[in-house]
């Protein structure tokens, strides 16, 4: 796919309003992911982070606003159609197919692809990229540790050869050792040309590897900017823990 001519934005959300039943989750939210970047969406509990990812993947339909991927409107499309356009997903809590083997999980990631030889090539590449996954390849995915499952979830998403990979809290519940490993891998994936959109609660971790960050607070983007600036901004702390002045 040629990138020439189109603007720098691979993914663009504009004016998104979503509802969970009668409760409004997003209020006219705007967000962009540039080609080749890692963008993180930060925020505390119940800020609407995960719903943002569901909007991109077509699992939640916004009541207003559009989602554009690679210049095309994908707002109304079904999830399989969106996946087929080149978006990969690492869902919250990984959501592996626990009763299937690791190998089957990886190949499920290539479900929309028909180029069998290339799939096999990618499969071997994943085993190289994730040696820990290779060791457990014939185990049931449900028997793996949390960190191993995260690796499988990432490899599974990459098997679809996505241009954009969406990750929901990739470091949640992992031991510090795995957290670092996962972050390294995200950076490595990005170096190979895959853009990354990542939803995280853990701001300091995410901003280490991201190029750009957004902070969501109760459905509104409260802060955004280059990752380095954001990490130094004292307001990010207020966005999570509440402002100093109100804590009288």
């Amino acid at each position: 796919m040629s990138e020439g001519g189109s603007r720098g934005d691979l993914l663009e959300l504009s004016g998104i309003d979503t509802f969970y039943g009668p409760a409004q989750v997003h209020f006219a939210m705007n967000l962009e992911v540039r080609r080749g970047q890692i963008v993180c969406l930060l925020g505390g509990n119940a800020s609407g982070k995960s719903t943002t990812m569901k909007v991109i993947l077509g699992l939640v339909k916004p009541r207003a606003g559009t989602v554009r991927f690679d210049g095309q409107d994908i707002t109304g499309l079904s999830t399989p159609a969106i996946i087929a356009r080149g978006i990969g997903s690492v869902p919250e809590a990984r959501r592996l197919f626990g009763a299937m083997t690791v190998r089957e999980n990886l190949l499920m990631g290539a479900y929309t692809r028909r180029d069998r030889a290339e799939v096999n090539h990618d499969y071997d590449r994943m085993l190289g990229l994730f040696p820990r996954v290779a060791q457990r390849i014939n185990n049931r995915a449900g028997t793996l540790s949390g960190g191993e499952q995260q690796m499988v979830a990432m490899a599974r998403a990459l098997m679809g050869r996505p241009r954009l990979i969406c990750m929901d809290e990739p470091t949640m519940g992992l031991s510090p050792l795995y957290v670092d490993r996962v972050l390294e891998l995200i950076a490595a994936i990005n170096k190979e040309g895959v853009s990354v959109f990542m939803v995280e609660q853990n701001a300091s971790l995410a901003l280490q590897i991201a190029h750009h960050g957004y902070v969501l607070r109760t459905g509104v983007i409260a802060l955004s900017g280059p990752a380095g600036e954001l990490a130094r901004d004292p307001r990010i702390r207020d966005a999570y823990l509440g402002g100093e002045r109100t804590a009288a």
Binding site: L59, P91, L96, M108
Partner: peptide, 14 residues
């Protein structure tokens, strides 16, 4: 099988 285990995750695989 994937749908039976987690239909939402299966949809996210396309």
């Amino acid at each position: 099988r994937a749908t039976a285990q987690d239909s939402e995750a299966a949809r996210q695989m396309g």
